[in-house]
């Protein structure tokens, strides 16, 4: 199973955010991280793949052109976890996950939707929240619910837009290890992460987006380098290995004058 992106351009209205981007095929069983400075087009690209933003070029899953599919058909094979958290509706957690399953018009095939939804909550360790109102949850809890909504249809391709932004350290680890398990089941996972150390630790490959195109793509150790951090993010950085061999990214400061990257202006870029 593979996801193909060829010559993809996307944006909002007339504004092009990504222009003519091609990626080596993403394979099942792997977690790929999209990274890059703010406004590099990471979320927009993810939305284009999810069918939520218009694009030109080819985005295909196993040779099936995703643009040709209807929204419900696409939702069956593509799970999307948006950056925005589910709003505080008067619904409990279980209801929202059932809704994620039923809204695309999918009928119960083997087991009732509520059983499937409950199984997902159990898997993510949030089953105790099943009957809690969405409006009573913390941001982090809502983010876990959002992941449950994205995976309940057991999609072949899982797209995650900054899935750890509202999570504390323990939950970041829990979510990302769960994401690894999901990939290990033979799914393709593509996630946006700002934290490059986290990305290096949990993903198989990293794609760095910069100035509307692909700057680098490959295993973390090849992509996350001081040269890349300087050029793309405009920061002076060291990349070292810890005693266990994991990559560690140390940011020492900004490059005076902003280097060549937009990152110097975008102080929000973290690594």
């Amino acid at each position: 199973m593979s996801l193909t992106l060829r010559d993809v351009s996307t944006g909002y209205g007339r504004r092009r955010v990504i222009a003519g981007l091609s990626l080596p095929d993403l394979r099942s069983g792997e977690v790929t991280t999209l990274a890059g400075p703010n406004a590099a087009g990471k979320s927009t690209l993810l939305k284009a793949i999810a069918g939520l933003a218009p694009f030109t070029g080819q985005i295909a899953l196993d040779g099936q052109d995703l643009a040709q599919l209807s929204a419900p058909a696409r939702a069956k094979i593509v799970g999307f976890m948006p950056q925005s958290l589910p709003s505080g509706a008067s619904l409990n957690v279980l209801e929202t996950v059932i809704t994620a399953l039923r809204a695309s018009g999918e009928r119960a095939v083997t087991e009732p939707p509520e059983t499937r939804a409950m199984a997902v909550l159990l898997r993510l360790g949030i089953d105790h929240l099943a009957l809690a109102g969405l409006d009573q949850l913390s941001g982090g809890q809502r983010q876990m619910v959002s992941l449950a909504q994205a995976i309940v249809r057991a999609p072949r391709l899982l797209l995650l837009d900054e899935p750890t932004s509202a999570l504390d350290l323990a939950r970041q680890v829990r979510l990302l290890s769960e994401v690894r398990r999901i990939a290990a089941e033979g799914r393709i996972v593509l996630t946006v992460l700002h934290d490059l150390a986290l990305a290096a630790r949990w993903s198989d490959r990293i794609a760095i987006l910069h100035k509307g195109g692909l700057y680098a793509f490959g295993p973390p150790a090849e992509v996350v380098t001081p040269a890349m951090l300087g050029e793309v993010y405009g920061v002076i950085a060291r990349v070292e290995r810890c005693s266990q061999g994991h990559l560690m990214v140390q940011i020492d400061g900004e490059i005076p004058g902003g280097a060549s990257g937009a990152g110097a202006k975008e102080r929000g870029a973290q690594a």
Partner: peptide, 20 residues
């Protein structure tokens, strides 16, 4: 009604669930 419930979770969420 399922689609309307989905929209209460937010427009992006609903679109992600396959709702037009």
């Amino acid at each position: 009604s399922w689609k309307l419930t989905a929209l209460r979770l937010g427009e992006e969420q609903a679109r992600g669930f396959g709702v037009d």
